[in-house]
Design a protein around this nucleic acid. Structure first.
Lengths: 270, 270
DNA sequence: GGATTTGTTCCAATATGTGGAACGGTGTTT
DNA sequence: AAACACCGTTCCACATATTGGAACAAATCC
């Protein structure tokens, strides 16, 4: 049987093979808000006790998890180390950064760069207002695509088939009263976003937070991403956001272009 | 056969079992400076072609690697996502942070927080001088313990046996002319560091960069870490560093104490 | 003291991963 | 143009690592 078969399970299913199971366990621990005990994990990942126990042992051996004094498990440092390389070596982020800075100077608000990964947007960079801000507060953070500006912008630039596949896979959680509650409602907005070339988040993910976003697509690298300007709604009106839309689109376009030039068509990084 | 058997290989050996091999491959790709092709990887990880090929396939399926148009592999976004949780959920960093900030205000120089992991120090936080600084420029970065301030400070607070095991495992790379070149020389300095309670890095890792560091130990959590104040040697003299040593020790002590209180003896996070 | 829950260990059955060898494609050399 | 070298992929008999039910302690609750 081939891997990418019928409706690739990826993040929902138990994961293919041994590695898949191990990763499912790892993710269960990483995504939990507090250290997970054996039994907690046993319930998230449905695996026989013996199996789970060995799996955890291996993960600890590998430094992906650490077991604490009270026997509970936490994500290990090896993940940080690996991610550092994954992030600092990311040429896309590197290219985009100057454009993010420029956009920040223009607007004075927080600017995000995020990449689409199935139903999620993963933030890879952020430039924020010069308060005493936590450094990489969001880098690596994953948010649902269907209720964020970048997410919707990115989705809007997918082929219809892909879009529908992802929409079908999406779990619609009503974060605020304005959050899309179903696939049709999302797909309708996507139509509009396609026409406009930019997406808004009207307090759909977090109350009092809204943004404008534009998509960045580099088919040669199978990259679908987006940038956004975000602000608190008491300070940033929708009219203001609409006025910035063109700038955001322009910046996104510049990044797209530069990625194509610097990374070349379809081939390697340098 | 038991896992933690004779001289646990961990990061050198091919890694135990299937997961170990997969991680070895992942690490090989992540630690390389540029996208790795099949053959490149084949040389780093000594595995049969068939095996490696399947391994890579699984890693891609899991989103740990991505394969690009030219068939080369890069670290995938899933790592970032996992690491974000590993980092943002790290209570230790959370507790330490205010102390780092205070130390930064006192000295005006860059302050680091790093955790010891076998022969390496992994940086988990950083507060730096208010230039237009790259955000999380070093978070997750791994540096050798034997030639960094935090590293040596951390090593100094290990039981002698552990220390020697790690020293034996260390690869002594002569980064600068002042870098320790062998285990005895390192062990001798560690003795001194134990007496003083703080460690210096006298341009041992990077030329023109030096620091003072103090260890943080929380045995209940099997945590050995350290903090440091770092500066360029043209601006920060050894005398200056020595003057800060007491402050660094004090901050480290405070963090140690607070971790013990907030995380409780040997048991869970909250 | 007995009952329940939790983490750990054991082991035969078997699914999974192993790795040498063969295959087809691309680009280079003669 | 044929011969060669290199690279990524596929195949398959074999071996090993994973599986998962069940038994085992140890703590915790009633």
């Amino acid at each position: 049987m081939d891997r990418k078969s019928v409706a690739d399970l990826e993040s929902d299913g138990p994961g293919t093979g041994t590695l898949g199971k191990a990763m499912a366990v790892l993710e269960a621990v990483a995504m939990a808000d507090r250290p997970q005990r054996f039994t907690d994990i046993l319930q998230s990942v449905r695996q026989p006790r013996g199996t789970l126990h060995r799996l955890l042992g291996h993960l600890v051996d590998e430094g992906l998890l650490v077991q604490r004094g009270d026997l509970s498990y936490e994500p290990g440092l090896r993940l940080l180390k690996l991610a550092y390389r994954s992030w600092s070596g990311n040429q896309f982020r590197d290219i985009a950064e100057p454009h993010l800075l420029r956009l920040h100077e223009l607007t004075g608000e927080t600017v995000h760069l995020g990449i689409l990964r199935e139903t999620e947007i993963i933030y890879v960079d952020k430039v924020e207002s010069r308060q005493t801000v936590r450094m990489s507060s969001q880098i690596g953070k994953a948010s649902p695509a269907y209720c964020t500006g970048i997410g919707k912008a990115a989705l809007s630039s997918l082929p219809q088939g892909e879009l529908e596949r992802i929409a079908a896979k999406t779990q619609f959680v009503p974060f605020t009263e304005r959050t899309h509650r179903s696939s049709p409602s999302l797909l309708a907005e996507i139509e509009e976003i396609r026409r406009e070339g930019h997406a808004f988040d009207r307090e759909e993910h977090e109350a009092e937070i809204c943004c404008v976003a534009a998509p960045i697509v580099v088919p040669e690298h199978e990259l679908v991403a987006g940038i956004s300007v975000t602000g608190p709604s008491y300070r940033v009106t929708m009219t203001q956001l609409a006025a910035w839309a063109a700038d955001v689109r322009r910046a996104a376009g510049k990044i797209e272009e530069e990625v194509r030039i610097r990374l070349g068509p379809g081939r390697g990084g340098r």
